[in-house]
Design a protein around this nucleic acid. Structure first.
Length: 211
DNA sequence: CTCCCGATAT
DNA sequence: ATATCAGGAG
């Protein structure tokens, strides 16, 4: 269902883009391998925490080939301050093994292939496509999902559906909008106590606190 | 739909 | 002490 008029959508889009002109991920990385690892670790975990973990991890495993040969227990030790560390340690090593064995060590460059990797779901694959390859895609994480609902841009019950709706509504600059909406959700339209005083989209808030 | 499961704010 | 944050796999 469409709550926002096309004119309102345009205005919301414009404000996101002007308030966050240079939005990008807050994950630290220096190449595609590091970005993919950081994104896998960031599932249900804050970027801040991931950034605390990755320096030592990348020092011990500088390339995907090193990670493919790693002991899961050693990886666990390095990422244990991260939520679901046990699953993620397995995913990281298995992901690296798959890339080495099935893709000659070359991390795939499209979403369809990325999603096949252990620990990589739709949101993570989209984030990599947006961040590294600059693709015009909308990735829907918990922030984008919440913000979309509060702004009346989506009433979908699943992130997948919200992604389709946002893609249809915005059409262009989806990658920039993704980053902008994440930052907006993380620092202003927060899950718990939204900073409504600092909100530059107040007038579009449906004021329904889900959950 | 359940499990996974640490850190931080309250 | 407890509620809340934050995605993917089986």
């Amino acid at each position: 269902m469409l709550i926002r008029t096309p004119k309102e959508v345009k205005e919301i889009k414009k404000r996101f883009l002007t308030h966050y002109p240079n939005a990008k991920t807050e994950l630290n990385y220096s190449d595609l391998y590091q970005l993919l690892v950081a994104v896998i670790l960031s599932a249900q975990c804050t970027d801040k925490r991931v950034n605390l973990i990755t320096p030592k991890l990348f020092q011990k495993y500088p390339t995907i080939f090193d990670l493919a040969k790693a002991e899961v227990k050693d990886v666990e030790e390095l990422i244990k301050s991260c939520t679901y560390f046990s699953n993620k340690a397995k995913h990281l090593v298995n992901m690296a093994k798959m890339v080495v064995e099935e893709y000659k060590g070359e991390i795939p460059k499209d979403e369809k292939e990325l999603v096949k990797l252990p620990g990589v779901g739709k949101k993570s694959a989209n984030v990599v496509m947006i961040e590294y390859f600059g693709k015009n895609l909308m990735a829907v994480d918990t922030h984008v999902f919440r913000v979309s609902h509060r702004l009346g841009l989506s009433s979908a019950k699943t992130p997948d559906k919200t992604q389709q709706e946002l893609t249809t509504l915005f059409k262009t600059d989806l990658n920039k909008l993704h980053h902008a909406m994440v930052l907006f959700g993380r620092y202003i339209c927060t899950a718990k106590e939204p900073k409504c005083k600092n909100c530059f989209l107040k007038e579009f808030c449906v004021k329904e606190r889900d959950t």
